[in-house]
């Protein structure tokens, strides 16, 4: 009898990673997202090939890392991250986080997840974990392609830092990885904003646009000196501080401030999403 069988069902596991794994599968097998990753990966390819083909000996002008690329291939990754940070990486995170709740609401799958049941706080937790994993993956794709192609085209060896001193190759690789993780943390904070926006609407595209407007507005405000009092509180203010990892000694101030701001944004917006979503009528 079904009643008896239902009683025999195992007690709910406190921690189950099945939904998170399902979520990641959904994100990383979706064609749109694979194409997006392709675009992210194309930037370091473009940079490396363009620099390789251009005449050597040119320097100055471009961002910090560009002039160093020919000396050490690892800098291809850093140049690519610098270029993608204002638009491409936020766009990728905006697309995923904007889709997280609004996409399910739009399809109607949200109501079926909730009646499984998936507790609403757990759903937000899983969605946010998936966004964070995606943010790390997106940054890693840029770094990995940049590092591999850079080493092939320009070679590795000791790294001359932006401050002029030299460190070993492994130290260089560690700094590149640390910078990537820092960027992933910053992007995850944007993902929390995205989760919140996504929980307000049933229109994933609308949510994505709103998140991108948010990050772009943050960059714009950051470049207006008249509102400098606001700068330390802007989500994107410390994003480029990852460059400080390539100085000796490392200037930690900007990086730690950046991590604090990211953590604050993540906590505030995750809680806002939770407060909004916990009692929201799901009529989609």
């Amino acid at each position: 009898m079904s009643v008896a069988e239902a009683v025999r069902r195992p007690r709910p596991r406190v921690v189950s990673t099945r939904l998170l794994r399902s979520e990641l599968r959904l994100i990383f097998t979706r064609r749109r997202n694979i194409a997006g990753m392709g675009v992210l990966a194309a930037v370091p390819v473009l940079i490396a090939v363009a620099i390789r083909l251009s005449s050597p000996g040119r320097d100055g002008g471009g961002p910090d890392f560009f002039s160093s690329v020919t000396e050490n291939g690892l800098f291809v990754a850093m140049a690519a991250l610098t270029l993608e940070l204002p638009l491409f990486l936020p766009l990728a995170v905006a697309a995923i986080s904007g889709d997280s709740v609004a996409g399910e609401a739009n399809l109607g799958t949200l109501r079926y997840l909730l009646v499984v049941p998936v507790a609403r706080a757990r759903l937000l937790g899983v969605k946010y974990a998936a966004i964070a994993v995606f943010a790390l993956a997106a940054a890693m794709v840029v770094t990995t392609v940049g590092v591999v192609l850079g080493l092939v085209l320009f070679g590795g060896g000791d790294m001359t830092l932006l401050s002029g001193s030299q460190v070993g190759f492994l130290s260089g690789v560690a700094r590149v990885l640390a910078a990537t993780c820092y960027i992933a943390a910053c992007l995850s904070a944007l993902g929390a904003v995205g989760l919140f926006v996504s929980s307000l609407t049933e229109q994933p595209i609308g949510a994505t646009v709103a998140i991108l407007v948010f990050s772009t507005a943050s960059f714009i405000l950051d470049s207006i000196p008249q509102v400098s009092w606001l700068h330390p509180f802007l989500l994107t203010h410390h994003w480029l501080a990852f460059g400080d990892l390539f100085r000796a000694p490392v200037a930690w101030d900007g990086l730690t401030s950046g991590l604090y701001v990211a953590a604050a944004y993540a906590a505030v917006f995750w809680l806002a999403a939770w407060a909004r979503f916990l009692t929201k009528d799901v009529t989609s």
Binding site: P12, R21, S22, L113, V116, V118
Partner: peptide, 13 residues
């Protein structure tokens, strides 16, 4: 269906 089953913490994988 596998996704819905994965979402259910009481279901046996």
């Amino acid at each position: 269906l596998a996704r819905l089953d994965a979402a259910d913490r009481t279901s046996d994988p």
